[in-house]
Each structure stands twice: as C-alpha cells, then as structure tokens.
Computed example of a mutant assay.
Amino acid sequence: MRYGRMLGSAVMGLVAAGLLGACAGTGGRGMTAGPGDVKRGEYLFNQPGFGGGKNGKSCAACHPGGRGLEQVAARYAGRDAELRSMVNRCIRMALKGEGIRDDSQAMADILAYLRSLGG
C-alpha cells in the first residue's frame, strides 16, 4: 500500500511539473495540444521566459497589449504553419529562447490569443 501511495505521488508530481512547465515557458514539450485557450495564450504572451527565453523579456515587451499584431488573424488565415514559424522566430530572435513545439498546448494557446487580437 505504501508503494502505491509513493507511486501515485510521483505520478501527480510529474503531471503537475508538465502542466506548470507549459505555463512557465517550456512550451509543453511532449504534450499533445488540445484546443487553444485565449486566456492561457494571453498569460504566456506576458510571461518572461516563454519558450525558454533567456533575456527576461516577454512577447509584450515588443507588443504591449498585442499592439502591432491586430491583423494576424486576417494575414495568416489558412497559413497556420507560417504563423507557428513566426511565433518561434520571435521567441528565438527577440526572447533569445528555444522556441516551442508546433504541436504543443502552448502553441495552440498563443495562436488562439494572437487570433483574438483582431477583434
């Protein structure tokens, strides 16, 4: 019985670490994305260290309140691969990060937020 509790605690710890990792900037590596969530995307957009960023900046440092990204939904309609590439380019160049997986929950969430900026 004691072994079962220890194993259960270990599994819960790993689950929590994975979920926290997605929000803390690891990009949810190894997780399969569900539908994007605008609120989670907004949270990630404003987090220094998103995508493994190492310079203490967030996406909002260059785009406060999403400024300059209002046309993303229209400009990248039907071009999801291109938009994911743009997100990772900004993470690598501006945030000095590693980027996030295209199929991660973090990517689904940040795209949902970016698409919401157009109104």
Rank of each mutant, 00 (worst) to 15 (best):
E98P: 00
Y113C: 03
Y43N: 09
V87K: 00
S58M: 04
Y76Q: 05
G30M: 03
K54Q: 09
C59K: 00
G41I: 02
C23E: 14
M12G: 13
S58H: 04
R101I: 07
D109R: 03
L7W: 08
R89W: 07
A73W: 01
M86K: 12
A22T: 13
R75P: 02
A61V: 10
R5K: 11
Y43Q: 10
L117F: 10
E70P: 04
A81W: 00
V11E: 12
S116T: 10
Y3E: 15
G34R: 01
A22E: 11
G78V: 07
R92I: 10
V72T: 08
G119D: 09
S58T: 07
Y113V: 05
D80I: 06
L7A: 07
Q105C: 05
L114Q: 04
P48N: 12
R75W: 10
Y3F: 09
G78Y: 11
G118F: 01
C59P: 06
E70V: 03
Q71S: 13
V38C: 09
G30W: 10
R84Q: 15
E82Q: 09
G4A: 15
P64K: 00
L95T: 07
G8V: 03
R101W: 08
C23L: 08
V72A: 02
G36A: 05
L111Y: 04
R92S: 13
I110W: 00
G66W: 00
A61M: 04
L114V: 04
G28C: 02
V15A: 08
G56Q: 04
M1S: 11
Q71G: 07
D109N: 07
N55W: 05
G34N: 14
D80F: 04
E98H: 03
K96A: 11
L111V: 14
D37N: 15
G66C: 06
M6A: 12
A16K: 00
F45S: 03
P64C: 02
A17I: 12
G21H: 08
L14M: 06
L20S: 10
A108K: 00
P35Y: 05
G30C: 09
L44M: 08
R101Y: 14
G56T: 12
A22N: 15
G97C: 01
R92K: 14
V87P: 01
L7K: 08
C90P: 05
G21P: 02
E98T: 14
L83H: 05
G97M: 01
H63V: 12
S104L: 06
I110R: 05
G118W: 03
G41Y: 01
K39H: 12
R75A: 13
R40F: 13
A81E: 14
G78I: 06
R92D: 12
A10Y: 08
N88D: 15
A112E: 14
G8R: 03
M86G: 06
G21A: 02
F45Y: 06
R101Q: 15
L14D: 10
H63S: 02
R2G: 12
G119P: 02
G18P: 04
S104Q: 13
Q105P: 06
R84F: 07
E42G: 01
S58E: 07
L19K: 05
G25L: 00
A61I: 06
A61Y: 11
H63P: 08
G97P: 01
G51F: 02
G51R: 02
R84M: 11
R115K: 15
G25H: 01
R5Y: 11
R115P: 07
L14S: 08
A16L: 15
D37T: 10
P48W: 04
Y43D: 14
